[in-house]
Design a protein around this nucleic acid. Sequence first.
DNA 1: TGAATGATGCGCT
DNA 2: GCGCATCATTCAT
Length: 199
Amino acid sequence: MTSSAGEKLPQVFYDRPTLTVAPDLLGKYIVYESAAGRLSARVVEVEAYVGQEDPACHASRGLTPRTRPMFGPPGRSYIYLVYGMYHCLNFVTESERFPAAVLLRAAEPERGLERMRQLSSGQDDLALLSGPGKFCRSFGLSTEQNDLDLTEGKLYLEDRREGPVNVATSGRIGIKVGIKREWRFFDADSRSVSKGRPL
DNA sequence: TGAATGATGCGCT
DNA sequence: GCGCATCATTCAT
C-alpha cells in the first residue's frame, strides 16, 4: 500500500472496551490527507465517553441525528460543533449499537506544520493542537468529516510502534457531570497537552 | 472572568 | 411546530 512508516489501525483496534482503546491511542499518529497536503500529529491527550449510562456522553440522551455515528460501527469519526464555534473530533469505539467514543484533545504537530499555522494563525507551534477545538481548526476538520471510515479514507490513525508512553489520568475537562470518573488520559512527558483544570 | 456564537434537544403550546 | 437553556472551547479583556 501507499502507507509510509506506520501501519493504519484496523477496525479491531477500535472494537474493544473504550477505556482500553483510549490510553492505547496515546503515542499513535493521526493522519489527514487533506486537499492542501498531508497533515500528521502524535496523539498525546484523549478522553473516553462510554455508553448511555455515562451522563457526560452525548449518547446519554439516546439516539439522535447528531449522535448517530456513536451508535454505528467502531472505527469511524464523530465530529460535532460545540459552543457554536469549535469542532471536536472523536473516534467511535466498541460494537455497533453500543454508543461510545474517544475524544481527541491534544496532539504534537508532525507533518504539515505550514498548513496548520495557516489555519490557526497567531499560535505557537506547540499550542497549535493543544485543545480539541484547536486541533480541529489546525487540521481543517469540521462536520464535513463527520462519520468517516477511519480504516478506509483520508483520515486515519497510524501505529509506528513507538516505545511505551508514560500514561497519566485525570478527571475529564469542561463537563459538569461525570467528573469523578478519571477517564482523561494523557502523555505525562508531553508539553503539548491542553490547558484546562489542573490535575 | 466573560463574550463570542449557533446547533441541538427538551419542554411547552 | 416554536422558543430557550445548554454546551466535551477559546481568546481577549
